[in-house]
Design a protein around this nucleic acid. Structure first.
Lengths: 335, 335
DNA sequence: TTGTAGGCGTTATCAT
DNA sequence: ATGATAACGCCTACAA
């Protein structure tokens, strides 16, 4: 690909002048300007972003770390980030961490090597002190899924405990007393938080939740099926199912329907996240809203504002917490 | 962030020696090596990828152009690409084109500015001659969703005409004669191709498909609902619905169920793509498989092989065409 | 084995 | 208004 020198030569000027018309920051005589523009077009010249980054010490790039691109939840997140980044003329660099601490760290390091100025990271596996260290090192570092007191102003997070409560409160209010919970077998803290919320709510309502009423599966359709089938095999009876996410909930719907149980007449089901899927499936899923799109937008703006030169100093010292709320649809009803 | 000079100074060596342990291409004395490694760790030094790109003239980066990240189909595609790229130690740069020719071109140009060595692009809007031009300019350029004769070896594509036929043939084989089609209102060629396939099949089966039996909506759940409702309002009767994609099909299921029609007893429905959703919804969707994951892998390997220095010259001259096949589930049955 | 020097493509600072 | 020149951070001959 042509360089700025090639353009300069073809236009009969110095590289400096070409650079001036590129940045249009200094006045260039109209005639030479058009001559240069013609040369640029003719050579199909595209300024080398790396050279620019090197000299300008700025890449206009925001890095994103998520566990997997194929998951609708993360796809939505990435999409929202890209949307606001684009408006600010920022490039997006996506790296995946796959729920593995080592891979997450590798992803972040690679983003650092690319000199991303801002970073929005969803870390499921890294230890808090590692994340704190990272945040202190990287000016535009923002965490999107957890709260860490020491770096609270860099945290955009969701109250998972409240989310668990919302689910359980609702089922209790519908009169359910035989409740089972489907959690994820992945060791991620948000599952623990939701479970804690559920436990708190249930004990307040004097509803028992024995350990055998909790099953663990992969956080997807198949995992939902297997987990609920496992519970049934154990001879456990129930009228309500609380699921770790919407995908598992659809698996439950499918498995129970296959067994001739009717939803919500025989069994009530609540999902989590409210991904697109929840509206699509039948019956439509009653679920807990996780406003990931709004959160992703917020996180991106926060990350970008952290590195802005004209950073308003009135950066409030608080964290950015988002609360769950119930989306009532068709999969849950009175007991 | 620390530079190679900082590391060199701290370790008491020259930058060149540091570079040597970084690339581990030349033997360095064990003592100095450990000293340097200590310095690197202490300074948390991360080699600047831009400087490297500049001098090495290689970025190890593959660019991806898709219309939108949030769409499950494209998320799957991006995910597959990232997967094989990662194995080859390539960074992935995603840009979105949003079905707009101008934006698609901007996305590609930005990828060029980043000096992506390979590119996998899904272009819905750019004219063929523009794409041909791009392919000739960019060595690692691969098209993933369409066939263009002049650059056939750079095309990984899906036979949409055959896809249309598959849907229609199946419905005909089930005895349906009153068929309606839900297409997308976006002006994309794949919709046209599928429609052509449907028309061919239907005329072979002597089934009539008047223009009023074709409705156009946005290619999603809401669009499916609206399109089918529109048809019903027109007083059109039917026993089978062919949909542009799975999301529209779920909209149709929902709308018809609301009206008390039973699927597949009263109406048969076929979707397209076989995204995850198709397995999840109720009834499970009978649909046409679009093997985007396999195709994306192939496209990535192709793009990477195109720029490989040890490129095997036995690059076959043919294109890479993928064929649809029917995934029979529950949403379609005998008339 | 290690150091020196030049250059990758661009921008910014001086001159002119 | 335009041209030299140095510098960004790194790698790679070439020397020592």
């Amino acid at each position: 690909m042509a360089t700025i020198k090639d353009v300069a030569k073809l236009a009969g000027v110095s590289p400096a002048t070409v650079s001036r018309v590129l940045s249009s920051t200094v006045v260039v005589s109209p005639k030479t300007k058009t001559r240069i523009e013609k040369a640029i077009a003719e050579l199909d010249f595209r300024p080398n972003a790396h050279a620019r980054a090197l000299v300008s010490k700025s890449t206009h790039t925001i890095g994103v770390v998520i566990s997997q691109l194929a998951d609708p939840f993360f796809a939505q997140m990435a999409s929202s980030i890209e949307d606001v980044a684009k408006k600010r003329k920022f490039q997006v660099l996506v790296s995946t961490g796959s729920l593995d601490a080592q891979k997450e760290l590798t992803a972040i390091k690679s983003l650092q090597a690319q000199r991303c100025e801002a970073m929005v990271v969803n870390s499921k596996a890294l230890a808090d002190d590692v994340l704190i260290d990272l945040a202190q090192r990287i000016p535009g570092f923002v965490l999107i899924n957890k709260f860490i007191p020491q770096i609270s102003q860099r945290c955009v997070w969701f109250d998972n405990v409240a989310g668990g409560k919302v689910m359980a409160d609702y089922m209790a209010s519908l009169g359910h007393a035989n409740i089972v919970v489907l959690s994820t077998k992945e060791r991620v803290y948000d599952a623990t938080h939701r479970l804690n919320g559920i436990r708190q709510s249930l004990s307040q309502h004097n509803i028992n939740l024995p350990d055998q009423h909790i099953a663990y599966g992969s956080p997807d359709y198949a995992g939902g099926r297997e987990a609920i089938e496992h519970l049934i095999e154990q001879g456990i009876t129930f009228t309500a199912v609380l699921c770790y996410n919407d995908a598992m909930a659809t698996g439950v719907i499918s498995a129970l329907t296959d067994l001739g149980r009717r939803i919500p007449d025989d069994v009530s089901i609540v999902g989590f996240d409210d991904v697109l899927l929840a509206k699509y499936c039948m019956p439509k899923l009653t679920t807990v809203k996780y406003p990931i799109d709004i959160m992703a937008r917020k996180a991106t703006e926060l990350a970008l504002s952290l590195i802005a030169k004209d950073r308003p100093l009135n950066q409030s010292d608080k964290d950015y917490q988002y609360k769950p709320f119930l989306v009532k649809r068709e999969s849950a009803a009175k007991c």
